[in-house]
Amino acid sequence: MSFTVEERGAPNSLGYRLFFKNAEGKYISPFHDIPMYANEGQNIFHMVVEVPRWTNAKMEIATKELLNPIKQDVKKGKLRYVANVFPHKGYIWNYGAIPQTWEDPAHKDKDTACCGDNDPIDVCEIGSKVCSRGEVIKVKVLGILAMIDEGETDWKVIAINVEDPEADQLNDIGDVERLKPGYLRSTVDWFKKYKVPDGKPENKFAFDEEFKDKEFAIDVIKSTNTFWKALICQQTNGGELNCKNTCISSNDSPFCCSVNEAKAAVGDACACEKEEAIPSSVDKWFYLDKK
């Protein structure tokens, strides 16, 4: 199963969008139409890469737009870039999401005592390759971190690209510390502090900042898939989420997006343009006091 992307608008601009196509050239939603599993029997999952490692632009699946293209997050009318908090530069993993998952904002998690963040579940892919924005890769799940972001449960799955040279040696969360010592601690540190330069408090975590193992992580992913199924079957009110798709819902469903409607949505987006410059302020480095 292969996927391609089509850029519209200028990168680093408000109008930039990255649309997805399947192997037949049909426009699809990366939120709804890409299967969660790449190989269910082996618990191999698809991951949609939103942010390549070492970059700063806060890219995300646009859950409220038709076809859910990738776009850059916006706050107060300005594009969002994550700060460089010493010793880190941008994102320290390939960052993205598992399709066909949803953290239900109406569901209070029994472990975190907080409701979901209304997004697909996040993934930190820790392999050696720097992936491309919009790349769909197959990953092996290793563990999970329970972050509490402004009172919402925001799970962070730790995974490895199955094509990574070390993939065979990484099978659970303990293997990460053994083969990549310090990476998990740096991951907690990154998530804890990345909003502090913007004047926000440090993020909190359940389980005393400890990572849970592979089995726990897969159970969490499956639960978010159950929430997504309820969403796409109209058993749950998704509010402003755009649940239209081209492959999952039947023709008589209000969530069914026709071929013509999908083409029109892409055609209405800005034409592909030359990349705009990234503000020089994005390269600023922040040194925060150790506690």
Rank of each mutant, 00 (worst) to 15 (best):
S2I: 11
S2D: 14
S2W: 08
F3A: 11
T4M: 08
T4G: 14
E6K: 14
G9N: 09
G9R: 12
P11I: 03
L14R: 02
L14H: 07
L18I: 03
F19K: 00
N22S: 05
A23L: 09
G25K: 05
I28D: 01
S29Q: 03
F31P: 04
H32Y: 03
D33K: 13
M36H: 09
A38G: 13
N39M: 01
G41Y: 04
Q42M: 13
Q42V: 00
Q42I: 03
F45N: 01
H46K: 07
M47Y: 00
M47Q: 04
M47S: 05
E50M: 03
E50C: 00
P52S: 08
R53P: 07
T55M: 04
A62P: 08
K64S: 15
E65I: 07
E65G: 02
L66Q: 12
L67E: 11
L67H: 04
N68D: 09
K71P: 08
Q72N: 15
V74P: 08
K75G: 04
K75L: 12
K76C: 09
L79D: 02
V82D: 11
A83M: 08
V85Y: 10
F86I: 05
K89G: 08
G90Y: 10
Y91C: 09
Y95W: 11
A97W: 04
A97Q: 04
P99F: 05
T101I: 06
A106Q: 14
A106C: 01
H107E: 11
H107Y: 15
K110Y: 10
A113E: 13
C115Q: 03
N118P: 01
N118F: 00
I121Q: 06
D122E: 00
V123H: 02
S132E: 05
R133M: 01
G143Q: 03
M147S: 11
D149S: 11
T153F: 06
D154R: 07
V157E: 00
I158L: 13
A159W: 05
V162T: 13
V162K: 08
V162W: 00
E163N: 15
D164F: 10
D164N: 08
D172T: 13
D172H: 11
G174E: 12
E177S: 14
R178C: 01
L179H: 11
L179K: 12
S186Q: 14
V188P: 02
V188W: 06
F191V: 00
K195L: 01
G199V: 05
P201I: 08
E202K: 07
E202N: 04
N203K: 12
D208Q: 15
D208G: 03
F216L: 07
A217R: 06
I218W: 02
I221W: 05
K222L: 15
F227A: 06
W228K: 07
A230L: 00
T236L: 15
N237W: 09
G238V: 10
G238C: 02
G239F: 05
N242K: 03
C243H: 02
S249Q: 10
S250C: 09
P254V: 06
C257A: 14
V259H: 05
V259C: 10
V259A: 12
N260R: 03
E261F: 11
K263T: 09
A264W: 04
A265K: 07
A269R: 10
A269Y: 06
A269T: 02
A271Q: 12
E273T: 06
K274E: 15
E275I: 10
E276T: 03
A277R: 11
A277Y: 03
S281R: 10
D283L: 12
D283A: 15
K284G: 01
K284F: 07
Y287Q: 11
L288D: 02
L288F: 13
K290S: 14
K291C: 00
